[in-house]
């Protein structure tokens, strides 16, 4: 600034005794002991204490979880030790049958098949989605004409209500439907696959619905991941003489690990919940060939009213899924920690 000839601050800025612009500490002190504010201010001041304030949002959230989850978890365990159907009076009067429901569940082939089938669907659908999404994201990596249109269109499926997707495909896949028509044109001969009533084809239809809708998500995750790659390590590798393939394999892929973790965890987590597609496409049929865990359990509870059996199966499922969740959370924590370490130089 300089310019020392003229005073840079007006006299008003000087401290003067009794300056009205300055509320003295003493005034503040009296203000505290004798508030003279309304009681609302008093309450607010109390809530503002850090040890109170920081718990404010926790009360309703924990309350909600305690209200919804805790009784249900207990109820789930309790019901599974009974033999109760919705049609048979009140649940608290139902007979206690110990582990019968569990033994029944483990001996229920339809249940075991449903579990196996669900994991099977996931095992096919998830890798497909990952590969397709990654491939498409790679193709859309560098700017080119039309890139925006492609990326916009590719994201569309994940914004559609899954039930609508199921319904939509059920229209397309009817025996004399447009899908068979397109296949016929491509093959040059009439093709009439019975997509919704053939044991194998129906499975493909359910997997197809999942892939169609959720490749959009893996695509989005990978596009964001590729866009977020730091440039300097890649440039450094180029200067050091690495070729494209080496850069991809030794630099980019390791850097993409957190993003790949997101995609894998997210998709496999969701794939175990498949419900909407079989319900709307095939209602689990033909036979039970597309019946997933969620569909079967839903039927157990609602169509067959075998609540205790359904509860036992839910518990078994919970145990199986817990292992998976434990691993998934560990992976997420580890990747987040690594990212944080990278961020801190």
């Amino acid at each position: 600034m300089g310019g020392s000839e003229r005073p840079p601050y007006p006299p008003g800025a000087r401290r003067a005794p009794g300056d009205p612009g300055r509320s003295s500490i003493d005034a503040q002190a009296t203000c505290r002991t004798n508030p003279g504010r309304s009681w609302i201010d008093g309450v607010l001041a109390r809530l503002e204490r850090e040890r109170v304030f920081k718990w404010l949002p926790f009360v309703p959230v924990q309350g909600l979880f305690a209200l919804l989850l805790l009784p249900n978890a207990l109820l789930l365990v309790y019901l599974s030790f009974l033999s109760w159907r919705i049609t048979r009076g009140a649940w608290w009067n139902a007979p206690f049958t110990g582990l019968d429901s569990f033994l029944g569940a483990l001996g229920d082939e339809r249940f075991l098949w449903a579990v196996g089938r669900t994991f099977g669907f996931a095992a096919v659908a998830v890798p497909l989605e990952l590969l397709l999404g990654f491939g498409l994201a790679l193709l859309c990596r560098e700017p080119f004409r039309g890139r925006r249109i492609y990326t916009t269109v590719f994201l569309l499926p994940m914004m559609i209500v899954p039930a609508v997707v199921g319904y939509d495909l059920s229209m397309l896949l009817i025996d004399q439907g447009p899908f068979n028509q397109v296949l016929s044109v491509l093959a040059g001969r009439p093709i009439t696959v019975r997509w919704l009533s053939d044991y194998t084809a129906a499975k493909l239809a359910v997997i197809g619905a999942d892939v169609w809708q959720w490749t959009a998500l893996t695509f989005l995750v990978f596009v964001s991941g590729l866009a977020g790659l730091p440039r300097d390590p890649i440039r450094a590798a180029r200067v050091m003489g690495a070729n494209r393939w080496q850069i991809f394999w030794h630099v980019e892929l390791p850097l993409l690990k957190p993003v790949i973790a997101i995609a894998v965890v997210l998709r496999s987590m969701e794939a175990l919940k498949i419900f909407d597609y079989p319900m709307l496409l095939t209602q689990g049929g033909p036979g039970n060939s597309t019946e997933t865990i969620a569909v079967y359990l839903w039927r157990m509870g609602w169509e067959f009213a075998r609540v205790s059996d359904a509860a036992a199966m839910s518990l078994i499922l919970l145990v199986v899924v817990s292992v998976y969740i434990f691993i998934a959370i560990r992976v997420l924590r580890r990747e987040r920690r690594r990212l944080a370490e990278e961020a801190a130089p």
Partner: peptide
């Protein structure tokens, strides 16, 4: 908690 399939809790 969110990762648990909702069907597990649906019955109770």
């Amino acid at each position: 908690i969110r990762m648990v399939p909702p069907i597990v809790i649906a019955v109770p």
